[in-house]
């Protein structure tokens, strides 16, 4: 499946729009990671646990969005946007949305 955050795919033509598809997730790391983050706040440096948290959340949100697009019979999601919101400390909501579409190569 083609997933892009642009409105067009060069060399391809949109032949059908399937509408908005979305995926969201709220994730947290186990509390040991939160304590480690508190300690890291003394010496500085990257909070790997929270970076991982964001990567996993993003992947899961995109996967859910793609699953929805697949169900609608689309082979592409265009103009994908991410949005995050703060729910509580140590957790992140990741929301991905885009337009599901059927595309085909221009020369086909």
């Amino acid at each position: 499946m083609i997933v892009v955050n642009t409105e067009i795919v060069p060399g391809m033509r949109v032949i059908e729009l399937k509408g908005l598809v979305q995926g969201n997730t709220v994730r947290a790391k186990h509390f040991g990671r939160d304590i480690a983050a508190g300690l890291k706040n003394i010496v500085g440096g990257e909070l790997k646990g929270y970076t991982e948290l964001l990567t996993e959340s993003r992947r899961q949100a995109v996967e859910r969005m793609m699953a929805q697009a697949q169900q609608l019979g689309a082979n592409a999601v265009l103009n994908v946007r991410f949005s995050t919101s703060s729910v509580t400390s140590g957790a992140a909501e990741m929301y991905a949305y885009g337009t599901a579409a059927v595309v085909q190569p221009e020369d086909a």
Partner: peptide, 18 residues
């Protein structure tokens, strides 16, 4: 020609620095 195989793709990166 663009095919499914060589089509553009979403990429992303995250970082949390304390």
């Amino acid at each position: 020609s663009t095919t499914e195989a060589n089509a553009p793709s979403l990429v992303s990166g995250e970082a949390v620095v304390s």
